[in-house]
C-alpha cells in the first residue's frame, strides 16, 4: 500500500517536472524576440488556415475574364492572374497546403527517422550498422530528385508530396536522434530500468528518448521549414500539387510565364512561403537557445 502511494507521488512529481520543463521552455521562448515573432507569424497563419477552412473552396477557382492581370488594388489586394482569379483568396487558401506538407512530411520523417535512430543508437552493433547504411543511402540521393522520382511513381497529390518530402528528411532525424540517444543510453537510470526488467521498447520510448528529445525538437522545427521549401520547389518544377490548386509553389510556377508583365503573381506567394519558413526557423533558433543548457547564461 505504501509502495503504491510512493509510486504515485513519483509519478506526480515526474508529471510536475515535465510540466515545469515545458513551462521553462515556453518562458525562455517568450523572452526571445525572434521566437516570439515566429510564434506570432505561425499563430496568424493558423488563424488564416482556420478561417479559410470554413470558406467555400470555389472562391479560389472563380474566374473573371474581364479582370485579367489586374495589379494589386483594393478589390484584389494581391492582383489577379491570367484567368482573372483573385490571388488574395488563392494565396490565403494556399496556407493549408504548406502547413499540411510541413507538419505532415516533417512528422512522417520524424516518426520513421527517430524510431530508426533510437534503435540504432540503443542497440548499436549490427542494428546500428544496417540503419546507418540505410540512412547514408537515403541521404546521398539529392532530396529534390528523390522527391521527383517518388512523385512520378506515386502520382501528383498532396499525400504523395508529403511522402516524397518526408522520406527525404528521414536521414536527418536518424542521425540526430541516434547521436542524442548515444549520449543518454549509458547513464545509470537506463541500467536501472534494465535491472528492474523493463523491456527494451519501453526503455527506449519511456526513458531514453524523452531525455534526448531537445535536439530532435530543434531539428523538427528546422526540417519543417526546409520541407515547405522543398515541397514548394517540387511544385514549382511541376512535381507537386497539380495546377488549379492554390499551392504557393504551383502558383509561382504558373505565374512564371508572366513574370515580366505581372511580377506580383510571384511576389505574394513567394512572400508567404518566406514568412512561413521564417517562422519555423525563428522558432527553431529560439528552441535551440531555450533547450541548450550550454548557451544559457
Amino acid at each position: 500500500m505504501s509502495d503504491l502511494r510512493k509510486s504515485e507521488t513519483v509519478a506526480e512529481e515526474s508529471q510536475y517536472k515535465k510540466r515545469s520543463q515545458m513551462l521553462d521552455i515556453w518562458h525562455s521562448l517568450r523572452r526571445n524576440k525572434g521566437a516570439l515573432l515566429g510564434i506570432i507569424i505561425l499563430g496568424m497563419l493558423f488563424i488564416i488556415l482556420i478561417v479559410t477552412l470554413f470558406m467555400p473552396y470555389e472562391m479560389v477557382l472563380r474566374m473573371n475574364p474581364f479582370h485579367r492581370y489586374t495589379p494589386p488594388n483594393w478589390q484584389y489586394p494581391f492582383g489577379t492572374d491570367f484567368m482573372g482569379r483573385n490571388q488574395f483568396h488563392r494565396v490565403l487558401f494556399g496556407t493549408r497546403y504548406s502547413l499540411a506538407i510541413g507538419f505532415g512530411s516533417a512528422g512522417l520523417g520524424a516518426l520513421v527517422g527517430v524510431t530508426l535512430g533510437a534503435f540504432a543508437g540503443y542497440f548499436g552493433k549490427l542494428t546500428d550498422e544496417i540503419i546507418m547504411r540505410f540512412s547514408d543511402i537515403l541521404a546521398s540521393i539529392p532530396g529534390i530528385i528523390l522527391g521527383m522520382v517518388i512523385v512520378s511513381a506515386l502520382g501528383n497529390s498532396l499525400r504523395n508530396v508529403i511522402i516524397a518530402v518526408g522520406v527525404a528528411s528521414i536521414p536527418f532525424f536518424i542521425r540526430i536522434s541516434r547521436a542524442s540517444i548515444l549520449t543518454v543510453r549509458n547513464q545509470e537510470f537506463v541500467e536501472a530500468a534494465h535491472a528492474i526488467g523493463m523491456s527494451h521498447f519501453r526503455i527506449i520510448f519511456r526513458h531514453v528518448l524523452p531525455n534526448g528529445l531537445s535536439p530532435i525538437i530543434v531539428m523538427f522545427s528546422v526540417i519543417l521549414g526546409m520541407s515547405i521549401i522543398t515541397a514548394a520547389s517540387l511544385s514549382f518544377l511541376g512535381w507537386g500539387i497539380p495546377a488549379p490548386a492554390p499551392e504557393w509553389g504551383t502558383m509561382m510556377n504558373v505565374g512564371r510565364v508572366d513574370m515580366l508583365n505581372a511580377p506580383f503573381l510571384m511576389t505574394f506567394p513567394g512572400i508567404f512561403i518566406m514568412i512561413t519558413v521564417l517562422a519555423f526557423n525563428l522558432i527553431g533558433d529560439g528552441l535551440r537557445d531555450a533547450l541548450d543548457p550550454k548557451l544559457k547564461k
Binding site: 514549382f236 518566406m274 526557423n281
Partner: peptide
C-alpha cells in the same frame, strides 16, 4: 541569413532575373 534561409532558391533566381 534567416531571411536568406527562408527564401526558396527559385524565388531568389526569379527576382534576380526580373
Amino acid at each position: 541569413t534567416l531571411v536568406g534561409m527562408s527564401m526558396p532558391v527559385f524565388w531568389i533566381g526569379l527576382i534576380l532575373i526580373q
